[in-house]
Design a binder for these strands. Sequence first.
DNA 1: CTGAAAGCGCTTACAG
DNA 2: CTGAAAGCGCTTACAG
Lengths: 346, 346
Amino acid sequence: MRVSSSPSRPRRPTIHDVARVAGVSRGTVSRVLNGGHHVSQEAADAVNAAIRTTGYVVNRHARSLITGRSGSVAFLLTEPQERFFEDPNFNVLLRGCTAALATHDIPLLLMIAGTRTEQRRITRYVTAGHVDGVLLVSSHTGDPVADQLVRAGIPVVACGKPMFPAVRGARLGYVAADDRDGAREMVRHLVASGRRRIGTVTGPLDTPGGVERLAGYREELAGSGLPVDDALVATGDYSRSSGAAATADLLARCPDLDALFVASDLMAQGALSTLSRAGRRVPQDVAVGGFDDSSAALAARPELTTIRQPWDRISAEMVRVLLAQMDGESAAAVILPTELVHRESA
Amino acid sequence: MRVSSSPSRPRRPTIHDVARVAGVSRGTVSRVLNGGHHVSQEAADAVNAAIRTTGYVVNRHARSLITGRSGSVAFLLTEPQERFFEDPNFNVLLRGCTAALATHDIPLLLMIAGTRTEQRRITRYVTAGHVDGVLLVSSHTGDPVADQLVRAGIPVVACGKPMFPAVRGARLGYVAADDRDGAREMVRHLVASGRRRIGTVTGPLDTPGGVERLAGYREELAGSGLPVDDALVATGDYSRSSGAAATADLLARCPDLDALFVASDLMAQGALSTLSRAGRRVPQDVAVGGFDDSSAALAARPELTTIRQPWDRISAEMVRVLLAQMDGESAAAVILPTELVHRESA
DNA sequence: CTGAAAGCGCTTACAG
DNA sequence: CTGAAAGCGCTTACAG
């Protein structure tokens, strides 16, 4: 039975055509394609020449059918979409992962598990083996998708330290910036510049970034001999508007605050506009430190002093660790150092 | 010959298992899977039940091997990466396309053709049939990738009106906002508010957005009986910094300008900071109108009056048109209306 | 080192 | 409506 190919596209050359032109068997062509082991130099040369003259490109579907591997990787977002798509870091991460995978000739499938239906669909798709591994962007507690993928034995590497407990200790790699240390560095900087009433706007406390940066804030304050006052802590959700709202709360509770450590640049933008509306000058009246060093830091007025997360390295490491896991290595955890970027706001 | 499956993952059920459980042949199962034509209700019910009990999921590789279709679509970026990844619209577009395709159970492959090498790799990948269609984000003249894909007969739908001449009239669909009309609307608004020396910062003039918005600016000015002065025109590249630089030029050349139509919100952000550094108040001294209604418009201070591009509809239309093209329909062009969003800057 | 051959899981004319 | 069968393009033990 022949499936008629559309008339516009001529039949693409197959391994059989290459074999004929090279004067060898299809098995030999395949061996050349797969590393060239157990093939004489002569045969290999003939095959490579034939590949060139025929314009042969491997049919990945046929290959996948027999190897059982798809040759592709998913980039999976299980957050509510808005949050991450609003985040300038997301772009950097996505671009970095795409580029790193391209190096290995592995296409990236973008998947967004916003709704329950989508989650089910994606879980089915991935566990059906349509993808060899998953780069996961999701840091919330009890992510059912991540949980199921890991249980199903799919290699998964998360961005940020995973918090879903069911999975802890399982075959789940991750790559994260050193959130706690970064937060400490920022608070240290604020203290060193003479601030004494330092508030913080945290990320969601069911995310590692939320928890760890708050912990770093508290540790550094305590280490500096400053009181740790819960009235100085407000929680946001990483969005600009939540940063504005949290800052308004803080200002109402502690009118005397003279510095703010905000757990993301985007929230810091919101903090800046609340401060400006309240007539507080930055940094003279209130110093503001952000986190991420995303494009939002440069767009802010004044430009944000912030903690740089090495996103380019994070994406490269995520891909490296995932590929290793797909090759059977055990899941690795990689923690990357952060860096203080000094600008105008603190 | 059996490829040993990894011990951790049990063999997945195949069409054969479903057939056995349902008590029918594999052909019948396949027919049910592919629309259920020529199948009795009884058989269909039995098959569906068997699919449920076995947890069967189709093996797409096997299906693709025989149908010759991959069942996936590429989202291809051929711009220098930085520009688009800096653009907040990009996220909206990417998310929208992913969601629209997901509706049809079609995965989106993200491809970035930054370097020459990448372009070659991607062209080979796509023309080899690894993807059934391409959503193209690239508006520059003479894009070699787009050109080759269209020539190879791959269904392609571009975001924005394509400018590469070699391809014009070929099987290339596109979806675009009405750039010219949007520009006219903004200039009309500026004129109506009493502005007389209206400058513009254009996009790159080898992009339709650059060309069309400039044309709209000129048309509306002429229609309003205002002089069209080339000293009032400066060109940017859609980046924030280029908007800042172009505005500085304009201010030097025409210190008396009282309004600015900036062809993107991001560039308008740059314009705003140049204006602020120059001591010009917005909108009192200089009114500033943007274009896009991206998240940058809301982040700007003052908030930007801008032209809204209907990105959600653009992505949905791109997918619709591409799918139609993949089904053999001819390439369509869709122009979507824009809308003035009135905020603080003008 | 190399060829012949089996088989991956599916779809679809072809007969009935 | 339905089954038997061919065949999509590839990889990989198995013999030689």
